[in-house]
Design a binder for these strands. Structure first.
Ligand SMILES: NC(=O)c1ccc[n+]([C@@H]2O[C@H](COP(=O)([O-])OP(=O)(O)OC[C@H]3O[C@@H](n4cnc5c(N)ncnc54)[C@H](O)[C@@H]3O)[C@@H](O)[C@H]2O)c1
Ligand SMILES: NC(=O)c1ccc[n+]([C@@H]2O[C@H](COP(=O)([O-])OP(=O)(O)OC[C@H]3O[C@@H](n4cnc5c(N)ncnc54)[C@H](O)[C@@H]3O)[C@@H](O)[C@H]2O)c1
Lengths: 207, 207
DNA sequence: CACATATTGTGAAATATTTCACAAATAATA
DNA sequence: TATTATTTGTGAAATATTTCACAATATGTG
């Protein structure tokens, strides 16, 4: 089991390598990869060494085979079922973004608790009442929940999702969720991203 | 100048404290804050100590005054000007989200390069050709750029933004940007978030 | 095949980050 | 006012992460 930071870098290496592959590059050295990502070659090598030995001394890494290894390790060979919770503005943008499907993440359900949304069709999926969460999660093989509900609803929704057996949550609500140890939450907290930038701005101004 | 990790935690403390303040809580100990965030009290204290001494031994931190201190440090007392680059699906959701304005981030311009988008009005802002970037950035006092352009356009757009003098970018395109040292880029790479979850799923499956 | 060149994989060293642990400070109680 | 119960702020210790540095390995060349 790799640590969180390593996995976060692996997904980025994978992205960079796929980009190079698209440009028909066949081999990459740790130095080349590090340069693109502003990291050290040693770190790239150490991270990649967790995949089993794939590099060739004197040459570097074969991009195609490395991508294969990364895809396997990261679980990107499979297609995962995703449920969207909260059929609002952000949810709509995410749902219609084609990139997720391409990477193996398939929206298979949309939940809301507002009767004005329930029953609407988005593409070929109908917005479903959140009360039918448990059965739909089972029937449509949902693995991941993407939460785009308002802040005040987020904890309650997280409780329902975990009760339905979901263990992987991507939360866009600006709230820290309290979940059991065996549940993973990732936060996509966009306001906090801006606040990090504003710290920099503020600090520049003070100099 | 605080390090990146500390700032990332400070913005979260601020969020938690504002939440407590809303519930009319007046004081919080490092232990209480740590508990909410699944962190250690020592880390909370050390982080907060960078703000100047604010805690009272035996009592904890006065929430209102701590929020004030955090807002100052993080630059949240001011209103910052934000430009949206890419008037697409994701851009629309972000633009219409009222939470940013509330936290001091005000969209003051929308840029696109597609003539079918240019001239449209979103709220009280008109989509502007990207060619007028430089003058608009100056006139409307833009501090931050939020990039919601396609991956293939992202580097080119980043180059234009930095040439226009912008130094704080929030990038949603799934691309690592190559920018000068004095430019800050934060990545909101939503597909990578899902890939991190899929690593966990995959690993659970293997156990 | 010997030699030169390039680059990996990885322990050991160097840095960075987090936690510990306790003196100092505050408040409550008697 | 003295005593007790808390909790801060922070050096020092403990962990964690990153980088260094070099032996081992692959390739190319004459
Ligand atoms: N829109 C953005 O660009 C943006 C940016 C940053 C953060 N966010 C955060 O993302 C979340 C969604 O934002 P949005 O703009 O899409 O909001 P929205 O109001 O457009 O959508 C929220 C949806 O959740 C549904 N909902 C409410 N309570 C529910 C419940 N208990 N169970 C199921 N569904 C429920 C609502 O009916 C609505 O359809 C919010 O937490 C917001 O703070 C959004
Ligand atoms: N929509 C999502 O939920 C989502 C999710 C994850 C990542 N993303 C990423 O966010 C970005 C935007 O996604 P989207 O769904 O909004 O795409 P979109 O196609 O709806 O919008 C992109 C907009 O950028 C404009 N544009 C293109 N080139 C430009 C240029 N050189 N200068 C200025 N404007 C330009 C286009 O005209 C368009 O209006 C993409 O990089 C995408 O990969 C989006």
């Amino acid at each position: 089991m790799l640590n969180r930071h390593t996995v976060e870098r692996l997904v980025i290496y994978n992205r960079v390598l796929k980009d190079l592959a698209k440009k028909n590059v066949k081999w990459a050295t740790s130095e080349k990869i590090a340069e693109i990502l502003f990291r050290s070659p040693a770190q790239v090598r150490k991270d990649l060494s967790f995949l089993g030995k794939k590099g060739k001394p004197g040459v570097g890494y074969n991009i195609r085979s490395l991508i294969g290894e990364l895809d396997s390790t990261l679980g990107l060979r499979k297609t995962w079922g995703v449920a969207l919770i909260g059929a609002g503005n952000l949810g709509r943008a995410l749902f219609h973004y084609p990139g997720f499907k391409r990477e193996g993440f398939e929206f298979r359900a949309i939940f809301d608790n507002n009767s004005s949304k329930i029953g609407r069709r988005w593409g070929d999926i109908t917005v479903t009442p959140i009360t039918s969460l448990n059965s739909v999660v089972r029937k449509r093989k949902i693995n991941i929940a993407v939460m785009t509900v308002p802040d005040y609803a987020a904890q309650e929704v997280a409780d329902k999702l975990t009760a339905a057996g979901l263990k992987e949550l991507l939360n866009f609500a600006p709230v820290t969720l309290n979940v059991a140890d065996n549940v993973n939450v990732r936060y996509a907290d966009l306001a906090l991203e801006l606040e990090n930038l504003s710290y920099n701005l503020n600090h520049r101004a003070l100099k």
